[in-house]
Simulated assay, not measured.
Amino acid sequence: MAVIDYYEILGISKKATANEIKKAYRKLARKYHPDLNPNNKEAEQKFKRINEANEVLSNPENRKKYDEYGEHWQHAEDYEKAKQQQKQYTKQQGSQGSSRRYTDEEFSDLFGSMFGGGSSRTHGGQVKFRGQDFNAELQLDLKDVYTAHKRTLTVNNKNIRITIPAGIENGQVIKIKGHGGKGVNGGPNGDLYIAFSIRNTSSFKRNGQDLYAAVDLDLYTALLGGEITVHTFDGKVKLTVKPETKNGTKVKLKGKGFPKYKKEGQFGDLYITYNIKTPTKLTAKEKELFTELSKLR
């Protein structure tokens, strides 16, 4: 099995900062994301390796273990325990007159073979290890997470059908249990962690479950009142405007915001801000009427 060099995968040096790791990962993840490279097996493999590298190097503790133990970083504690047991064993054997002692290098090779799927045993049984966790980023549009929907992801050459709950937020991470790396010697699989990157191409601003929008209001409706039609995220509604409405007035449309995460049927609110538009290109008659109105005031 070829040695995995996570630094090389991300194209960074071993002295790279956390910010440099983050930038390198995001750049490569976007380039090789399966959504942008449909039916491209090579891109899928690269995307998988990029996520594995980021999982290790973006975590300071994991990175330290990787720098010391390489691809077996997840088993650092077990390695040290086993190494200590080996030293105690050889010490005991030496006190009994045995001439066979394993060197650190020999023991490292023996222990490493177990990680590769060998049948090394400790105290009469195989040591089981949990598989590695995987990280992935999924890019969606805001409209995609307004309703719950299913989506198929390709992870480690396997298609996974998941349900994306309505109301999920930008940067939120969900765990898909058992879809990470395969366990060693019958150990449990790792988990898959999916981070959501949500683009907002709508005219609404989102803050949690609440939405915000600006609506232009003509001067006459603002002064005299009336009824207007406004857009919500899922359609149009009619709204009554009170007479003498001021510029910048805010109104709340209860329950017309974004769905609340994992709370079916519950929504935030939509806040509308009125921007009163001053009429331009007035006719001579309009100017005359406004002049008369100004004299009355």
Rank of each mutant, 00 (worst) to 15 (best):
M1Y: 05
Y79N: 04
E105W: 12
E244V: 09
T278A: 12
N51A: 14
P38K: 09
P279M: 01
G117I: 03
Y25V: 02
D216M: 10
F267P: 04
V173M: 08
V155W: 07
K254L: 11
I272S: 08
N59P: 11
Q92N: 12
P165D: 12
G131Y: 05
Y7A: 13
K81R: 15
I198Q: 02
G186D: 14
A214N: 12
I9F: 09
Y6Q: 06
S119I: 15
S99H: 03
K295F: 04
Y32L: 13
S294W: 06
F111Y: 15
Y66I: 07
A43Y: 05
D133W: 00
T221G: 02
T201Q: 14
I9N: 01
A18K: 11
A2L: 11
K27L: 07
I50Q: 08
H123C: 15
G265R: 09
D35R: 01
Q86D: 09
K150P: 02
T240A: 13
A53V: 10
D269G: 11
Y7W: 14
L219F: 10
H123Q: 14
K281D: 08
D269T: 02
D141Q: 13
R199P: 00
T17P: 02
K238G: 07
S113K: 10
G131V: 01
D216N: 08
K14W: 05
